Amino acid sequence: MDLSTIILPEHVFVGLSAPTKWRALQLLSSKAAHCLGLDESLVLRALEAREKLGTTGIGNGIAVPHAAIIGMTRPRGLMVRFSHPVDFEAIDDVPTDLAFVLLFAENGRSEYLNVLAAIARRLRMEGVLTAMRQAKSADELYSVFMTDSIC
Rank of each mutant, 00 (worst) to 15 (best):
M1A: 14
D2Q: 14
D2M: 11
I7M: 04
I7Q: 03
I7C: 05
L8M: 13
E10F: 00
V12H: 01
V12A: 01
F13T: 07
F13N: 10
L16Q: 13
L16S: 08
L16R: 09
S17T: 14
A18Y: 05
A18W: 00
A18T: 08
P19R: 13
P19F: 01
T20P: 02
K21P: 00
K21F: 01
R23Y: 03
A24K: 09
Q26P: 00
L27C: 04
L28C: 13
S29H: 04
K31C: 14
K31M: 12
H34P: 00
H34T: 14
H34L: 13
G37R: 10
D39Q: 12
S41R: 11
L42F: 05
A46E: 10
A46P: 04
L47W: 02
L47C: 08
R50H: 12
E51C: 04
E51M: 03
E51K: 06
G54E: 06
T55N: 08
T56S: 08
G57D: 02
G57N: 04
I58A: 08
I58H: 04
I58P: 01
I58N: 04
G59E: 02
G59N: 06
G61F: 00
A63S: 14
P65Q: 12
P65F: 09
P65V: 11
P65L: 10
H66R: 12
A67W: 01
A67S: 12
A68F: 02
I69D: 02
I69Q: 05
G71K: 11
G71S: 10
M72Q: 14
M72E: 10
T73G: 13
R76W: 02
R76M: 13
G77N: 09
G77Y: 03
L78C: 05
L78K: 09
L78H: 06
S83A: 15
S83L: 13
V86S: 01
V86D: 06
D87N: 15
D87F: 06
D87L: 04
F88Y: 14
F88D: 02
E89N: 15
A90P: 02
D92H: 07
D92E: 07
P95G: 03
P95K: 07
T96I: 07
T96P: 00
D97M: 02
A99M: 08
F100I: 11
F100L: 09
L102E: 05
L102W: 02
F104S: 13
E106M: 12
N107D: 15
N107G: 12
R109T: 12
E111V: 13
E111F: 00
Y112R: 07
L113A: 11
L113I: 09
V115C: 13
V115D: 03
L116R: 09
R121N: 13
R121Q: 13
R122S: 07
R122K: 15
R122W: 03
M125N: 11
G127E: 08
T130D: 12
A131V: 05
M132Q: 04
R133C: 07
Q134L: 01
Q134E: 11
K136A: 15
S137D: 11
S137Y: 09
A138S: 15
D139F: 05
L141D: 04
L141P: 02
S143L: 10
S143T: 14
V144S: 04
S149R: 15
I150S: 04
I150N: 00
C151M: 07
